[in-house]
């Protein structure tokens, strides 16, 4: 970030991120779409380094604030997209057209995305702690007992 000779804008990268997430990681998802989203987000994250700060003040600098927030949002977005791609099932808000059923055997676990030395986050899992609410059929169609 900072300095001159930059090619990217905070608003521009943010718009591209929003568009990708809306299109590929929205209400209905697919392996194809999520793969494209992951590629775009990885690209956006590398381009993030080329963002220039126009506001160089030290008082209430919202240009800086938005640039910092964009960095965090991109990391968050990629974690979401990678985890969604790895989750080959549908569960709650995560609805995949290529894997429509819920798979408790493989995926009754929380997704954890780890950012390490590599740019792309590694997705791992940890078990769900079940206490009061037990897994069951979640049918909100209204046509059942």
């Amino acid at each position: 970030m900072q300095e001159t000779g930059a090619t990217e804008t905070v608003a521009g990268l943010r718009k591209e991120m929003m568009h990708t997430m809306e299109q590929h990681a929205g209400i209905y998802r697919s392996g194809e779409g999520l793969t494209a989203a992951c590629a775009t987000l990885a690209d956006l994250r590398s381009r993030y380094g080329g963002v220039e700060l126009h506001d160089k003040t030290n008082v209430y600098n919202t240009d800086l604030l938005q640039a910092l927030e964009l960095g965090s949002m991109l990391e968050c977005a990629e974690a979401v997209a990678q985890s969604a791609l790895a989750r080959r099932e549908s569960r709650g808000a995560h609805q995949r057209l290529d894997f429509a059923a819920r798979d408790d055997d493989k995926y009754l676990r929380h997704s954890l995305a780890y950012y390490g030395a590599a740019q792309t986050p590694r997705v791992d899992y940890c078990d769900v702690v079940i206490t009061r609410s037990k897994p069951g059929v979640r049918d909100y169609s209204g046509g059942h007992e």
Binding site: T9, V10, A11, D55, T62
Partner: peptide, 11 residues
């Protein structure tokens, strides 16, 4: 304005 014209505008 902030996104396209003048990123230094604070509000």
């Amino acid at each position: 304005i902030k996104e396209n014209v003048d990123p230094t505008l604070s509000y």
